[in-house]
């Protein structure tokens, strides 16, 4: 069997014929294998959800216990028979529970990366490269201008700004699943042990992370603390920080934690005063190194800047093509 027969693109999403299942379908289907809990990969309504235990917990927290008729938690690294295929979920290093889907059948192996990164992240298991024939990679930051700096440097810049402006509060726009918890965990690693204040929309997932064994230290919801928040760090969804919600904060320094912050014009457009280049997606160097590492001869590219990465693959003698999946890239689409 050829590796390219293990996967095919259908309107509902990426279909895996030997397993009889969709991977990260965009519409409800009978059986969905889901790489991770972000809304552009994990949507409610499918009859059966197969994912890591952490992703199942996150999906239930986001959509409710009744969003899927049945859920099946498959621990990472444990192969499972599904139809004529063997399916293994392998850590992707993107957010808690995120996994690559390894599909094996008829002597061929395909890997669907979902979203991934190679930089260390205290809130999730690190990416494990899997040798394969067909690699489906994301390309959110698939341009050579994207090289993310070490996250510690960005945290250090944040803390320096907090120290320099003690009369203001620092409000960080961070996506509710993954980025927020990673920022908190990195702040803890850098020694910030004060209470971190959260927009209400972030509380639920932080609680889930805590329950799944990721300690985040003292957290509190932003209510009417007013001047008490001077000198403190607040996290909220990016959309809230330029909106009325932010008015309750004392003279906030608006920060944003995103890979897009590397481009200053983007940061300026969004009215960000302190851009922090922190991403949960692979940068250009990580994308190209990972493709090389998998040894895949065929590469399908999804999410964003496919063209440049396909050009690069072609230059390496790889057979590459863009895969037009609808509605992807939600969590860093800013």
């Amino acid at each position: 069997m050829k590796a390219t027969e293990l996967l095919e693109l259908r309107p509902q999403g990426l279909w895996c014929p030997p397993a009889g299942a969709f991977i990260d379908p965009v519409r409800p289907v009978d059986r969905a294998i889901v790489t991770h809990g972000h809304g552009d990969h994990c949507r409610p309504g499918s009859r059966a959800l197969l994912a890591t235990p952490e992703t199942v917990a996150i999906a239930e927290a986001r959509y409710g216990r009744t969003a899927f008729a049945a859920t099946q938690a498959i621990p990472a690294g444990r192969p499972m028979r599904l139809g004529d295929a063997t399916i293994t979920l392998v850590p992707a290093g993107h957010v808690l529970g995120s996994a690559q889907v390894v599909v094996e059948a008829g002597g061929a192996r395909a890997v669907v990366s979902g979203d991934y990164k190679r930089a260390a992240d205290p809130t999730c298991a690190p990416f494990e490269p899997v040798p394969c024939d067909l690699f489906v990679t994301e390309a959110t930051f698939g341009l050579p201008v994207f090289r993310h700096p070490p996250v510690q440097d960005e945290i250090a810049r944040l803390l320096a700004s907090v120290r320099a402006q003690p009369e203001r509060c620092h409000a960080i726009g961070a996506y509710a699943l993954g980025k927020a918890q990673r920022m908190i965990a990195e702040l803890r690693r850098a020694g910030w042990d004060r209470t971190i204040y959260l927009h209400g929309a972030l509380v639920g997932l932080c609680t889930v992370y805590g329950r799944l064994g990721i300690p985040l230290g003292p957290l509190e919801t932003v209510r009417g603390q007013g001047a008490e928040l001077k000198g403190e760090i607040v996290l909220g969804p990016p959309s809230a920080l330029n909106d009325r919600w932010a008015r309750r904060l004392p003279d906030p320094v608006i920060c944003a934690a995103s890979g897009w912050m590397r481009v200053r014009q983007r940061a300026k457009q969004r009215g960000v005063e302190l851009p922090l280049v922190v991403s949960d997606h692979a940068d250009w160097d990580e994308l190209t190194a990972t493709i090389t590492e998998t040894g895949a001869q065929t590469v399908w590219v999804t999410h964003g800047a496919e063209e440049a990465l396909c050009l690069w693959c072609a230059d390496q003698g790889l057979d590459a093509r863009p895969l037009a999946l609808a509605g992807r890239g939600e969590e860093e689409a800013m």
Partner: peptide, 26 residues
């Protein structure tokens, strides 16, 4: 230093030439 096609795609995305060069330099 950089593949001209990758440079052109990056410049399209970033917009500003100085910033593109600053970021893309390997």
């Amino acid at each position: 230093r950089v593949d001209p096609r990758l440079f052109a795609l990056s410049h399209d995305f970033v917009g500003d030439l100085a910033e593109t060069v600053a970021l893309i330099w390997p």
